[in-house]
C-alpha cells in the first residue's frame, strides 16, 4: 500500500514529466564538478537541457555569478560546443573566462538594443541544437515567455541561463532552478598575504523537484571545491512551483 506521500511525489513527477521536465537518470552523466551541491537536484544530477535563473542585482554579485557560471560552462563546453551570450549592458570581460577553463573565443556575444529582442534572440539560440549554453541578461520575463524558452530547450537540450538583475521583478516561470551567487571573503592560502581563491555563497533558492539550500564553494586550481564544514542545507517551506 502506497503512502500518501509516495503518491503525491509520484504524481508530482508525472506532472513534471508531462510538462517536459525530464530529470536525467542517475549516473548517466558524470556531473559538472559541483560536488555536494549536485545532490540538491533531482536524482543528484545537475540538470542540463533546462533553464537556470541566476539572480545578480549588484555588479559584485554579477561578477560572482559570472565566475560561478563560467565554471559550469567549462564542463558544458568541453564537448566542443559554442556558447551564446545575449545582453544589453554587457560588461563581461572575455579574458577572465580563461581563468575558469573556458575558451573565450568560443563565446559569441550578441548585444541587442531592446529588451524584447533579448528574449527573441534567446529563444532562437535555444532552438539551435548542440550549443553548449545560452546566457541572456534579462530584466523581465513573463511566464509565457519563459514557457517559450522551455519549449525551445525541450527539443534542443541546450542549457540556458537567465541573468536577472532586478530581483523585484521575479515572477513564476519555468526555470528549473533559481540561483543567487554572492561573493564571500576569500581564505588566504597557507598564511600568504593577499587575496585567495574566489569563494562564493551559492544559494539555490528554488529547484524543481529538488532541495533548495545554501552552499559555500570555491574555485581553485581549475575546479570547484565545496567548503564542506559550513554546509547548511536549509529546508525551505514547500513553494508553489509555477
Amino acid at each position: 500500500m502506497e503512502s500518501k506521500k509516495d503518491i503525491v511525489s509520484r504524481l508530482q513527477k508525472d506532472i513534471l514529466r508531462w510538462q517536459g521536465f525530464n530529470p536525467p537518470p542517475a549516473g548517466t552523466t558524470k556531473g559538472i564538478g559541483l560536488g555536494l551541491l549536485e545532490s540538491a537536484f533531482p536524482n543528484g544530477v545537475f540538470p542540463t537541457g533546462t533553464i537556470h535563473e541566476m539572480i545578480c542585482p549588484t555588479p559584485e554579485q554579477a561578477a560572482a555569478t559570472g565566475g560561478f557560471m563560467s565554471g559550469i560552462l567549462a564542463s558544458l563546453m568541453n564537448q566542443g560546443g559554442a556558447c551564446i551570450w545575449i545582453g544589453i549592458y554587457r560588461k563581461l570581460f572575455p579574458p577572465s573566462l580563461k581563468h575558469f577553463n573556458v575558451q573565450p573565443d568560443r563565446l559569441i556575444f550578441i548585444d541587442v538594443q531592446r529588451e524584447k529582442d533579448v528574449l527573441w534572440a534567446m529563444e532562437e539560440a535555444l532552438k539551435c541544437e548542440g550549443l553548449a549554453a545560452v546566457i541572456a541578461e534579462v530584466r523581465e520575463i513573463s511566464f509565457a515567455q519563459s514557457r517559450r524558452l522551455q519549449l525551445a530547450v525541450e527539443s534542443s537540450k541546450v542549457t540556458g541561463f537567465l541573468l536577472r538583475n532586478d530581483p523585484r521583478k521575479l515572477a513564476a516561470n519555468t526555470c528549473s532552478a533559481r540561483w543567487q551567487i554572492s561573493p564571500l571573503p576569500s581564505e588566504p592560502e597557507g598564511g600568504l598575504p593577499g587575496i585567495g581563491f574566489p569563494r562564493w555563497q551559492a544559494e539555490l533558492l528554488r529547484v524543481r523537484n529538488g532541495n533548495p539550500g545554501i552552499w559555500q564553494i570555491e574555485w581553485a586550481n581549475g575546479k570547484f571545491i565545496p567548503i564542506e564544514e559550513e554546509v547548511s542545507v536549509i529546508q525551505l517551506p514547500q513553494r508553489k512551483v509555477g
Binding site: 566542443g80 559554442a82 548542440g130
Partner: peptide, 10 residues
C-alpha cells in the same frame, strides 16, 4: 560533440 563555431546551424 556539440555545435561548434564551424557548424552551419550556428
Amino acid at each position: 560533440g556539440g555545435t561548434g563555431l564551424q557548424d552551419s546551424s550556428l
